[in-house]
Design a protein around this nucleic acid. Structure first.
Length: 287
DNA sequence: GTAATTTGACCAGC
DNA sequence: GCTGGTCAAATTAC
């Protein structure tokens, strides 16, 4: 039952993320679909293999076969993740992922500025730099503090605070304080919906305490917004693919290699597969 | 070595 | 004294 609810949660996320969609050119779209289809087929093979030996200790050959399949799956999905991050990068240059999700120690961080580097697939634009995290009274999740990366070289005073919503853990409340005075962040604003344009808030994104007019407090130099880090389909897919990675790796006791933090979990590989198999061509938009 | 995050300490406002 | 915001040394990742 719990697993079912989690499945519904993912489906709900997907439905909410119908807008906006990430644009892919036709070739990229076809290539990524091909990779995902390959990964899906391989995952089905692995699923079959695991089902054939549900309780017995795995022998060397079955483990070797499974590892081989997993390696292929991981390559397929890693390539897809890189492509999605590249798309996201061009769409969300400089946006942060909400911060609090990746604030845990030991988690690798996804960079997404569009230029390759050694960490993850793409390097972030470094518009924001985390400088603190604080437990806030009567809140379940800590508040994360970010400043503009150009605070010192250009004297930019922009900061933002990110806090995960308690009543809807898929939402993050972001408070912007000050404005960017640096040169390179004018087009790097995060994908967010502010109180300044509340009509853009869909019902699913409205906090419980916000009325239908979407009005909330907005200070002179403060913008508050509620946004979903997975606001783009690419992010949903990245999370799902990464989830598959972890599940498969855990299944084979290979040890996780987390590259993306994700919020949802499934009770079994079958449970995840049931959701993963929902991804199809209609889940991607292309020009 | 560089550039990021983490986290305990510090500080100011109430 | 409590709380929230910031600093900065330590740590991490490449």
């Amino acid at each position: 039952m719990a697993a079912h609810n989690k499945s519904r949660a993912i489906e709900s996320m997907i439905c909410q993320d119908k807008q906006p969609q990430v644009s892919l050119d036709f070739n990229s779209h076809r290539r990524m679909i091909g990779q995902l289809a390959d990964g899906r087929d391989l995952a089905v093979q692995l699923q079959t293999l695991l089902r054939n030996e549900p309780t017995q200790p795995r022998n060397y050959w079955s483990v070797a076969m499974a590892q081989d399949i997993v390696e292929k799956i991981l390559k397929s999905f890693s390539d897809s993740i890189c492509m999605l991050n590249a798309v996201e990068s061009s769409d969300f240059s400089g946006s942060d992922d909400g911060g609090s999700k990746d604030s845990g120690a030991g988690k690798k961080r996804l960079d997404s500025s569009g230029s390759k580097n050694g960490r993850g697939c793409y390097k972030r634009s470094y518009a924001w730099r985390k400088y603190g995290q604080k437990e806030i009274l009567n809140t379940k999740f800590p508040r994360c503090y970010y400043r503009c990366t150009h605070k010192y070289d250009q004297g930019c005073k922009a900061t933002k605070q990110v806090q995960r919503m308690e009543d809807d853990q898929q939402l993050y409340r972001i408070t912007y304080i000050g404005e960017h005075t640096c040169n390179r962040t004018s087009n790097l604003s995060p994908k967010m919906i502010t109180d300044a344009d509340p009509w853009e808030l869909s019902d699913s994104l409205k906090p419980r305490n916000m009325n239908d007019n979407g009005h909330g407090h907005v200070a002179a130099t403060v913008e508050k917004g509620y946004f979903k880090p997975e606001d783009a389909r690419s992010d949903v897919t990245v999370k799902s693919l990464s989830l598959l990675r972890s599940k498969l790796e855990a299944e084979l006791e290979l040890g996780p290699e987390p590259t993306v933090a994700f919020e949802h979990d499934f009770s079994s590989l079958d449970d995840f597969m049931a959701n993963f198999l929902h991804f199809d061509d209609e889940d991607f938009a292309f020009d």
